[in-house]
């Protein structure tokens, strides 16, 4: 049966496509080509319904409607696969973004703490500084 071979091969190709490392632009191009082909086939099928049945008979499927169903299942699988991958990439971006926010906030907090620590330290130093006449200028600057 031709249809069985075709379907198995298609499922394997989709599976490999899913496991392949992501390449942004080529993925987008493939998706768009697929979309284009889909539109073409849809128009042809609407204008010449018997065409579907002819193809179906050729590869060992009883009716054109059955062939349509098989194609739909495959399209669904591709859709799930690409959506999943896009999700993974999107999540990765969110992670980077959230991490940047976390680290930036931590850095700001650390800077504040350090400033507060320096502040307390200089305040603690002040009496001896004031006592020592030579360092009056420095005390003024701190104040």
């Amino acid at each position: 049966m031709w249809i069985q071979i075709l379907l198995v091969v298609a499922v394997i190709v989709i599976g490999l496509f899913l496991a392949r490392p992501a390449g942004g632009d080529s993925h987008l191009a493939i998706r768009r080509l697929f979309m284009f082909a889909f539109v073409l086939v849809a128009i042809v099928s609407i204008l010449f319904p018997q065409w579907l049945s002819y193809i179906a008979n050729l590869i060992g499927v009883g009716r054109g409607a059955d062939l349509l169903l098989y194609a739909l299942v495959l399209a669904f699988l591709i859709s799930v696969a690409t959506t999943y991958r896009r999700n993974v990439q999107l999540n990765r971006r969110i992670t980077h973004l959230a991490r940047e926010i976390t680290l930036a906030r931590a850095q700001a907090e650390d800077a504040l703490r350090r400033a507060a620590a320096v502040d307390t330290a200089t305040r603690g130093d002040r009496p001896p500084v004031v006592d020592a006449p030579r360092r009056d200028d420095a005390a003024d600057q701190v104040g």
Binding site: I94, T95, A98, R99, I101, T102, L103, R105, A106
Partner: peptide, 10 residues
């Protein structure tokens, strides 16, 4: 502890 906060669960 020094606590860093993720804005969302990651």
């Amino acid at each position: 502890a020094r606590v860093l906060r993720h804005p969302v669960n990651l």
